[in-house]
Amino acid sequence: MSDVAQHLVNAASLGSLYALLALGIAVIFGVGRILNFAHGQLITVSAYVLLVVSGLPWPLVVVLTLLTGVVLALAMERFAFRHVRRADPATTLIVGFAVAALIQEILVLSVGARSKTVDFATSTTLPVDIAGISIPRLDLVTMGVTAVLLIGLTLLLTRTTVGIQLRAASEDFGMARLLGVRSTRIVATAFAISGLLAGTAAVLLTAKSGTLAPEMGTPAVLIGFFATVIGGMGSLPGAAVGGFVLGVVTVLMQVLLPDGLLPYRESLLFTCVIAMLLFRPQGILPAATAGQRV
């Protein structure tokens, strides 16, 4: 019984983390039709900044890490993606590839290829006992942070002018512009939100693993991509659900798969992604986009 509960907590925690990754991808894809492969490097660089400032009081560390994500995301938009605004999503994927490679190699040039350990929020890995289940504090933090971000994002999107503009631009970018929504500003806003989510993911990932490596962002961005596919590309609620589902299924497979198949759980998971593209390309929660955008 407590075993089951333990797995459920694991699943929910991993699902929350994956939801953050997927949202970071989806918010940009929705507005700009840009599939940002370099989202992983937003996470990586933020994590390295965390390493540098980890001696400071923790709230300051968190703020600086998030700020790194936002600033770097804005720079990416300004210096890379803005030049290919008219390109199709497959081309933006290649641009993202190039930006990702560039940042990663510069990172290797400056900090070396070897992984580093970071002493940050180590106490959060200690478990607390709730109703007989021992739950690592970090899992609770992850779920809590995700919940707060989801609520915050929902409020932003429904209550503020810029949020309504973001949703409108996701549905029909051209029409939003015809009503006076400034395209550069709205895309930059989407990147800033994505950067904030990447910074958050960096904090949580670093606290969880305690190690950093220049290539740590790549698996994260793949998860984000595939989760948005499962949830429905361009749909923010879809991305959150897709990430959550991907996390839960990952944990379930760890628990339920027979030993022989266990090493192939990623393959199985990504085969499901391809199947999803084939049989339900609109995802679990389809985005409402005007036909001409897709």
């Binding site: 309504i164 949703r167 409108a168 549905e171 029909d172 051209g174 029409m175 409402a288 005007a290």
Partner: peptide, 10 residues
């Protein structure tokens, strides 16, 4: 080209 997922007010 109404934004169908947004409310009338939005």
């Amino acid at each position: 080209r109404i934004f169908t997922t947004l409310t009338v007010g939005e």
